[in-house]
């Protein structure tokens, strides 16, 4: 296994708290996901009106990616070949349930394209790609639990085959207001943490 790759930075959003590289950057004691993510968005000065049209999974993934990538000081005038490899357990089920509700009763039948488009987990990758102009490799995987081995194998493959210069990997789960978690990390040739199963799991659990 190639050990030339490192974890350059990492970000997590869980328990009403946003952390970047192990330090809390925003915290909110009281609220459930929806008011929390809105407050975190404002606090982080994200300024991206499309955010408010996104479903909850996309809001979660987008904000985590934005906090992490903003800190990278990317030159957005140039292309950044950063692949995105995301995973979760619940796919887009939160929005799927919403679409199902809109068609369940024929008396109140009203399917909406603005909801239906988010019934795919990879839409959140599209949102991030649009914001950061990432014309790069992207894929969404579903696992029962956080799967460090898979993310390691797949990021190594993309980097060693020169498909990407860096890979934004992670777990973005939204399965109800009380059951959400984002953990993203950027794999690169720079950085001090080894891109190894052990270190990925250690960061995920902190």
């Amino acid at each position: 296994m190639n050990t030339n790759y490192h974890i350059k930075s990492y970000c997590s959003i869980k328990n009403n708290q946003v952390s970047l590289n192990g330090s809390v950057v925003y915290k909110d004691e009281e609220e459930s996901f929806s008011p929390f993510i809105k407050a975190a968005y404002k606090d982080q000065n994200t300024k991206y009106p499309k955010f408010f049209k996104m479903d909850k999974l996309s809001k979660l993934a987008f904000l985590a990616a934005d906090v992490l990538l903003k800190n990278e000081n990317l030159n957005l005038e140039e292309e950044n070949n950063i692949a995105i490899v995301f995973s979760n357990k619940a796919s887009s089920l939160d929005t799927d349930r919403k679409h199902q509700e809109s068609i369940q009763n024929k008396e109140s039948y009203f399917p909406s394209p603005a909801v239906f488009v988010y019934t795919l987990p990879n839409i959140c990758i599209g949102e991030i790609s649009i914001k950061y102009k990432l014309y790069s490799e992207n894929s969404f995987f579903i696992f029962e639990n956080f799967n460090a081995t898979h993310l390691l194998t797949y990021s190594n493959s993309l980097l060693s085959s020169n498909k990407a210069d860096q890979v934004l990997c992670g777990w973005v789960e939204f399965d109800g207001e009380d059951n959400y978690e984002a953990f993203l990390y950027l794999v690169s040739t720079e950085g001090t943490i080894t891109n190894s199963k052990q270190d990925i799991i250690k960061l995920y659990n902190t």
């Binding site: 619940a90 796919s91 839409i123 894929s139 995987f141 579903i142 029962e144 898979h150």
Partner: peptide
């Protein structure tokens, strides 16, 4: 049953795969 990992487990267990299913859901 709508969880995709559950679909993966059903197929995995039917054939006794030794590795968990990798579910790709990319539109």
């Amino acid at each position: 049953r709508a969880y995709l990992s559950e679909l993966g487990n059903q197929v995995k267990d039917f054939f006794h795969f030794k590795n968990d299913a990798i579910v790709v859901s990319n539109a």
